[in-house]
Nucleic acid binder design. Structure first.
Lengths: 254, 254
DNA sequence: ACAAGGCGTTCCACCATACTGAACACTTAT
DNA sequence: ATAAGTGTTCAGTATGGTGGAACGCCTTGT
């Protein structure tokens, strides 16, 4: 549904629109798709044939689906992030230490992207999945990144995406956010108090590379009733910060 | 590098060629890419701009990379496979029971695709990754699938991809393969005796749906010295077969 | 059984548009 | 300073993507 924004190569834009539509519809036939993306059947058919020949799409019993070739692409794309390679096992350890959810995040095109996630058997079951893209201002992970981005880039992102109110606690005021980012820079720790999901609190720390620019962030998240007092304000922040530092060290001599 | 096969929409084929090239080069600049795919700089630039606008490509410090949007696509694509949803936890359990590597495979465009993989702390460290596509005749997982495909489709696949000799043990004779597939059908178990990787043996079972058509396979793999005698010929096959049956049952009432 | 509507597919003519090559800034190396 | 590399822009041309209509097939309803 990113249709209206044009300006590039039409055929390519349309191809990706079709891929996305296929995913949103959980697989579909030509007519259904054509109707969904608002293009003539023949055009859609032409695209599907091309995508199938290139093995990015599979047809099974009369219905088209996106293929697992995307899995291949995404795995190599993910492995190109040094952050993923280094921090993955640290996230797992964080889960063992805390029993909660831990996640790794990076920023792309002004939005937060979950690059890896792990959770203990007793941890909360939240909806977020790897690869999901969420507004950057409403998570601890996002704010940790935002705080350490160069100012111009930070403004650019906020201008482009705004500060939509996701829950009642979401910070949607620019001034308030600026202040909070200031404290995050001081403490190297960001909090999320049900700002994206009701009932979910989290603690995150930024991860900086050798040149002091943010390349991502790491967090621990859990249900509000377990995230309180000493644990929420002192213990978890210290643990997360420690792990973040370990990751930073590992990254610098690689 | 799938360039020569044409016949579809040129712009789309080229866009995906560029995406694949970006992955193979671990990120690249316009000129390097143009040279690699054999197209004029301006054309490549045009494609990259389009892909970046659509957020499938990211540029950072003068170099282009494939973005994690592919992660988003592939995650939903993978979740559309009922096999993945159901069998994932069974693979994990198989790892706990055996301490070896366990994997889940499906077939796409005549090749084997690893859909999920897990391994114990003491298990062999092999190169195969999720999303990888390998010839279908040289793994236990692939043969388990191949054996239960309709005959016409089986021939079609062999005609298209041949039977390349990957290791000294790979079955590259059509007759021999046909016989082995016959026994696989009888026993519901397939073996791989260093047919894809030297030193690696594995045992796999097909997974059939309600209508008796294969939708994938599941395996246990380990270093040859640990995969021998009773364990290799009786214990592991029984375990794998048991798990496969559990998965089949779970799939049928979903 | 036959019609009616659904589907995916094929065809072809037209004109939008993707491609190209050259010229343009710009940074980095010599 | 010069040169060689980079990414970017531009405009003309012919390529080839587009989309309407027609086709054949299978399913549905009566």
């Amino acid at each position: 549904m990113t249709a209206p924004e044009s300006g590039g190569i039409q055929a390519v834009d349309r191809a990706f629109d079709i891929v996305e539509a296929l995913n949103e519809l959980d697989g579909a036939g030509v007519s259904e798709l054509a109707n969904y993306v608002g293009l003539p059947k023949s055009t859609v058919h032409n695209h599907l044939s091309t995508l199938e020949r290139a093995e990015y799409v599979v047809r099974e019993n009369g219905s088209y689906r996106t293929s697992l070739k995307f899995l291949q692409i995404s795995e190599t794309a993910r492995n190109q992030h040094e952050l993923y390679q280094v921090a993955r096992s640290e996230v797992d350890q964080l889960v063992e230490k805390t029993g909660e959810i831990s996640a790794l995040m990076t920023e792309e095109h002004g939005r937060s992207v979950f690059i890896y996630r792990s959770r203990g058997p007793e941890a909360a079951r939240i909806d977020t999945c790897i690869g999901d893209r969420v507004p950057i201002h409403c998570t601890a992970l996002g704010k940790a990144i935002l705080a350490f981005l160069p100012e111009e880039r930070r403004n650019e992102i906020i201008d482009r995406h705004g500060l939509p109110e996701v829950t009642r606690n979401t910070i949607s005021d620019r001034e308030v956010l600026a202040e909070e980012l200031e404290t995050i820079r001081e403490e190297q720790i960001a909090y999320d108090d049900e700002e994206r999901l009701n009932g979910l609190r989290s603690v995150a720390a930024p991860i900086l590379d050798g040149t002091d620019s943010v390349i991502g962030s790491i967090s621990v998240a859990g249900p509000t009733h377990r995230m309180q007092g000493e644990r929420f304000n002192t213990e978890l922040p210290e643990t997360v910060l420690g792990v973040a530092n370990v990751i930073e060290l590992n990254i610098q001599h690689t």
